[in-house]
Structures are given as structure tokens and as C-alpha cells.
């Protein structure tokens, strides 16, 4: 493994603090050509999808809340690269990227955003509430922090069934201050559940910066009193995410209990569509985009190594745009749910 890269996310302290020697943290995975191209493609799909969603929101096709994942793509794509069939994923309301990374269809997600019958929840869930039994994606939750207890329950089920699957519970720096997160940490550590807690620290809980909301801003250490090891990871570098994910997954699969990964990341857009993001400077955003963009990092590497030509990357770009355009067309033309759906799916 290559040595730890220097902190790449602004000036924040990113030194890994391994609590156990068998978990080094902070390494960077060696990516093959296939890995890098896969990561590039998947991150680009999320980026373009979210851009299109933003556009459709502006046109009035998407209503309500819509939280975009732009800027944070490396986190979910890198984590997903370390999983195997049956591993579960659960997250909060900024969930479109997670669903695409889990392999849920772009059409299904986009049509759900527009509230159409072909949406993944038949138009009854919306942006924050989508699920897929087939892809082991358990939502999509609008109550900040609730997914952490639920994700702990997924891990409980794995242990109960005696399989070696792990559960990934994603939550933000804001949710990290919810009480049930610590109730869950306690139980997961007590029962040695195979739970990977991923704190997507994008620096702002809605409009409140981490330093204004958190007494302990190093979220990787939030499990310390339960003996849960935790590591800070450069969440803008998909290789760092993948390396941390590999080690975390191995830790959980081997029965050592839960682990926390704090992903140092950044959202380029506002909290939701109605957020002008006046709590941070344009320079701050611009600096992240120009110096740490997760997609540009991969693109530069691929070009430098000669793994793909400009044309080949353009082809990937085009493929991705086609998928997104198709999903947007579908999401605008698919009919709304039949009125009879109002009273279905309440009870089985």
C-alpha cells in the first residue's frame, strides 16, 4: 500500500488515528485501470444525474425537498467497491448517489423524484424515501439519525442469521449529534455487530458549520467511549475511500464489531434546493471544486497513466449523459400514480 497522502481537504487535520494496529487507515488503494474507469463512470453518473435533478427541480418537475450529492461522489462509490452481494446500505435523505451506486436504476430514481408511477416507490416516497430489497438498499430516511439505529438493526440481522454480511449506515456530521447514534454505537459494540458507520462530514449541517455545532469535531473519535475504532478518510479521493472500506469491511466480517469511518468531504450545492448557502464563501466552494474534485482527480490520473484517451473518456461521458437524459425523459413522460394507489401499501 502506498503511504498516506497528505491532507487534501482544505487545511483540516486528516491524520489517521488508528486505535488498533491491525487497521492502518489513511492508506490509498492501488487502483487498476478497470477500477479507475469504473469509479470515474459511477461518480460521473451521480454528478450528471444530480445536475439533471437540479435542473428538473428548477423547472418544477420535482417538488418538495431535494438534496443533491454533488461533490461527495467518491464516498459512496469507493465504499460500494468494497462490498459483496448481500451487504446492506442505509442512509439519510441525501440519498440519490447511494441508490445509483447500489445499482438501482436511474429511471426509477428520477421518476420517483418527479412522483411518477414508474418511480422506485411508485411515486409515493419521493427524494428521501426509496428502497430496494433486490439491491439491499434500505432507504432513504428523512428523520436525521434514524438510519443509524435502523442500520444497526441490519447488522443485528446479519449476526442473528449467522451470515458474514456487513451493514453500511451513512449519516452526516449533523446526524452525528443525535442521541440515538450513541445508543446504537453502544449496542453495536456490546454485541459486536458487523456495522460500518460512515460519517459523511461535508462540514455543514444544513447551514451550521461543524465548529458551531460540535464540541468534538473529529467524528472518527465519536465511538471512542464504546471502544469503536474510527478513522478519518479523505472522502474526496475514491482510492482512499476504497482502502478504508476494504479494511473496515474486513474488520466487520471477521467478527471484530463495528467501525467508524469519517469521510472528509464537501457538498458543492446548498443543503437543499432552496438553500443559497450564504453561510460559506464562494471562494471556499471554488477552491474545493478546483483542487479536490473527486471526478477530476480520477480523470487526471487516468489521462496521466494513459489508461484512456480523451475520446474514450468523452465516450464514457456520453454514455452517462444518455442514461441521465433517458431517465429524465422517462421521469417527465411517465404518468402519475393511479388515484387508487392512495390506499395501497399501507398494510400487507
Amino acid at each position: 500500500m502506498a503511504p498516506r497522502k497528505t491532507a487534501s481537504v482544505s487545511s483540516r487535520k486528516t491524520a489517521a488515528k488508528p486505535a488498533k494496529k491491525d487497521f492502518t487507515g489513511g492508506t490509498i488503494a492501488e487502483f487498476s485501470k478497470e477500477d479507475d474507469l469504473k469509479a470515474y463512470r459511477e461518480m460521473l453518473l451521480i454528478r450528471r444525474f444530480e445536475e439533471k435533478a437540479g435542473q428538473l427541480y428548477g423547472m418544477g418537475f420535482i417538488g418538495g425537498f431535494c438534496h443533491l450529492y454533488i461533490g461527495q461522489e467518491a464516498v459512496v462509490v469507493g465504499m460500494q467497491m468494497a462490498l459483496k452481494e448481500g451487504d446492506q446500505v442505509i442512509t439519510g435523505y441525501r440519498d440519490h448517489g447511494h441508490m445509483l451506486a447500489c445499482g438501482m436504476s436511474a429511471r426509477g430514481v428520477m421518476a420517483e423524484l418527479t412522483g411518477r408511477r414508474g418511480g422506485l416507490s411508485k411515486g409515493k416516497g419521493g427524494s428521501m424515501h426509496m428502497f430496494s430489497k433486490e439491491k439491499h438498499f434500505y432507504g432513504g430516511h428523512g428523520i436525521v439519525g434514524a438510519q443509524v439505529s435502523l442500520g444497526t438493526g441490519l447488522a443485528f440481522a446479519n449476526k442473528y442469521r449467522g451470515n458474514d454480511n456487513v451493514s453500511l449506515a451513512y449519516f452526516g456530521d449533523g446526524a452525528a449529534n443525535q442521541g440515538q447514534v450513541y445508543e446504537s454505537f453502544n449496542m453495536a459494540a456490546l454485541w459486536k455487530l458487523p456495522a460500518i458507520y460512515i460519517v459523511e462530514n461535508n462540514r455543514y449541517a444544513m447551514g451550521t458549520s461543524v465548529s458551531r455545532a460540535s464540541a468534538q469535531t473529529d467524528f472518527s473519535q465519536r465511538g471512542a467511549s464504546f471502544g469503536i475504532p474510527g478513522y478519518q478518510v479523505d472522502g474526496m479521493d475514491v482510492r482512499a475511500v476504497k482502502a478504508a472500506a476494504d479494511e473496515a469491511v474486513e474488520h466487520c466480517r471477521s467478527g471484530k464489531g463495528p467501525i467508524i469511518l469519517e469521510m472528509l468531504t464537501y457538498r458543492y450545492r446548498g443543503h437543499s434546493m432552496s438553500d443559497p448557502a450564504k453561510y460559506r464563501s464562494k471562494d471556499e466552494v471554488q477552491k474545493m471544486r478546483s483542487e479536490h474534485d473527486p471526478i477530476e482527480q480520477v480523470k487526471a490520473r487516468v489521462m496521466e497513466k494513459g489508461w484512456a484517451s480523451e475520446d474514450e473518456l468523452k465516450q464514457i461521458d456520453k454514455d452517462v449523459r444518455d442514461i441521465v437524459a433517458d431517465s429524465a425523459d422517462f421521469a417527465q413522460s411517465d404518468p402519475e400514480p393511479d388515484a387508487s394507489e392512495l390506499y395501497t401499501d399501507i398494510l400487507l
Binding site: Q88, I90, Y138, A146, V148, S149, L150, G151, T152, G153, L154, A155, F156, A157, Y160, R161, G179, Q180, E183, S184, N186, M187
Partner: peptide, 15 residues
């Protein structure tokens, strides 16, 4: 709060 959530999560998997 925590164990109710753990129970619901386990139930969502079919337990």
C-alpha cells in the same frame, strides 16, 4: 429509541 430502531431495521430484513 435505539433498540426500537434496531428492531425495525432487523424487521426490514424479514426477521
Amino acid at each position: 429509541h435505539g433498540f426500537a430502531g434496531v428492531g425495525v431495521g432487523a424487521a426490514m430484513t424479514g426477521l
